[in-house]
Design a protein around this nucleic acid. Structure first.
Lengths: 331, 331
DNA sequence: CTGAAAGCGCTTACAG
DNA sequence: CTGAAAGCGCTTACAG
């Protein structure tokens, strides 16, 4: 017969009783500590396994002290940006013996808030891209590193992202490839920072711009597919386009393929993020890439500082990252 | 001045002392419990925030009891299969208030073992694809759900995957599309289960087969690119190919594009897994898809059973999942 | 080699 | 409304 769910879990005392020893002897036997006779050790191990004993982690953690656990907040793990970041972060965290628990927000805002709260209570610190509102409630009392977010650095650590150098490199590259009519597809009606920089640089470089140079679409693959189609109609003389991110850019590649528009000879395409998926497609995507390994490093450092008692606002909790242009085939 | 890292973290007693109350009053004030006067509550909150107090989670967990944490083991989070699974698993786990910690094994086997051990000690159960050897040491005492692994169901719960129905559906589809020379690219020298089924079905259907019908390549995107090139030389009359998985299949799509071989008119391509990336590429990938949401559901159920005290071997801990053919553009 | 004592930091009854 | 007591399940000294 199996133990039923109603029964309390077995504790070290149960094992001690079953093996006929004290509970500190059980501790020694089960944790491979010295000072237990071989026979006693065996007897204890047998009893533990017979009772299906598993030490209570909370109790162990309380007395042994435990390494930090950090919560990684992502808006949607299916957006390939996040796995890359998560991979780096768990790797770097693992080097210090830290754990990472995942908090995938999903689409439903209420749900997202609930998840955020649940995770926030179980970790020592949070890291991630999060909407401004969320920081108020759920994360008010949790040390937090905001990635590229609304930088209320009075309340939490911030890794700001400076898009200027990356976008400048991309436009330099496009110019020297002979492009002169560069469009941009943004992800929202209100001009993003990325779009503002795009405008500023086009102006600085004396490149042609008109309201028609800008499109808006959802920042999804499908949004990109449709934006490409729209761009072909609306502004056929465009010879290059900067997408809000790589996911959209890859969608545009597909959109152009469907419209029989050749990339890069008819139109050059540049994404932002530098994701691995950019190398999966044909042609491979040129992208304004960010170094996720470095981002992860900085995030860990900031968590470390936060856990050490450095409290915002503090200039040590404010860092900035920039991009690098990864030239591949699409531009 | 900030607190230095050498100082012990503040406890509830420190807050109590600072606020001039007992520690149970601190508990009540900080946890929004009734029976505290407004002024006391304010005073406590102020003291806590001044001292940068964060409750010790282990202590809280010990006394309150905590929801399970499950460790998700993946060989490489950058393989897009895993984010999809992880996304579903965290979603389903979140519904029960459970947390998921990530264990990304990486390339170095020693390192992988270390990570596995670290995570195993911090969670209540593990879920994932793991090599046979790992179960011996690191996970010997951790309740575990093995996904599509070496099914030593004497020691842990298992979700077996039966590839037969999916591969059969794919071959049916290819046959009815007029394909008759179906190749397969496997991921290792020794024939995988997938390849064995492929052989058996080709034989059952009276379809042409020769040793040349089979290629072997690393199960990576690049492996797929090269396998496509090789297939073009080695076996140009092939009219369809089954790839070991979607990552390879997407690589083959790129390889064929480079060789100016048209998919699907020159050759049909079918992958296995049903990943989202299959819809990003052009043409979109037809794939033998598995329902990750369902996989996640089953995994959670099995963890639940394990935590309830159901001990392997037990037929309730052994489940099987199958695929479904997702017909898109490549076949 | 083994056990009795003390304590980790919190919360949950139980008195006042 | 507030505090003294007891206890969650473990481990870490300290005696024997």
């Amino acid at each position: 017969m199996n133990k039923l769910s109603s029964s309390k879990p077995t504790t070290i005392n149960d094992v001690a009783r079953a093996a006929g020893v004290s509970r500190q002897t059980v501790t020694r036997a089960l944790n491979n500590m010295p000072d237990v006779s071989a026979v006693t050790r065996e007897r204890v191990i047998a009893a533990a396994s017979a009772l299906n004993y598993r030490p209570n982690r909370a109790a162990q953690g309380l007395v042994r002290g435990s390494k930090p656990t950090i919560g990684l907040v992502v808006s949607d793990l299916r957006n390939p940006y996040y796995p890359e970041l998560a991979s780096e972060l768990t790797r770097k965290a693992g080097l210090r013996g830290w754990s990472v628990v995942l908090c995938d927000l999903g689409d439903d805002p209420d749900d997202a808030h609930r998840r955020l709260e649940t995770v926030a209570q179980r970790v020592d610190a949070m890291v991630g891209h999060v909407a401004a509102g969320e920081w108020k409630g759920a994360l008010a009392n949790t040390p937090t590193v905001v990635l590229d977010g609304p930088s209320d650095s009075a309340k939490h650590a911030v890794i700001a992202i400076d898009y200027e150098p990356g976008i400048r490199a991309a436009i330099d590259h496009l110019k020297s490839a002979g492009c002169s009519r560069i469009a941009m597809v943004d992800a929202g009606r209100a001009p993003s920072i990325r779009r503002q920089i795009y405008r500023r640089l086009l102006n600085e470089y004396g490149l042609q711009w008109s309201p028609d140079s800008e499109l808006v679409a959802p920042d999804t693959h499908d949004g990109g597919v449709r934006a490409a189609a729209r761009l072909c109609k609306q502004n056929p003389q465009t010879d290059a386009v900067l997408a809000f991110n790589d996911v959209m850019a890859v969608g545009m590649l597909k959109g152009f393929a469907r419209a029989d528009v050749n990339v890069p000879s008819d139109i050059a395409v540049v994404g932002i993020d530098g994701l691995d998926i950019g190398t999966l497609v044909t042609p491979e995507l040129t992208s304004i890439a960010i170094d996720k390994a470095k981002l992860a490093d900085i995030a860990i450092e900031l968590v470390d500082a936060l856990l050490d008692g450095v409290t915002p606002p503090d200039e040590r909790l404010h860092r900035t990252a920039t991009h690098t242009l990864a030239v591949r085939e699409s531009a």
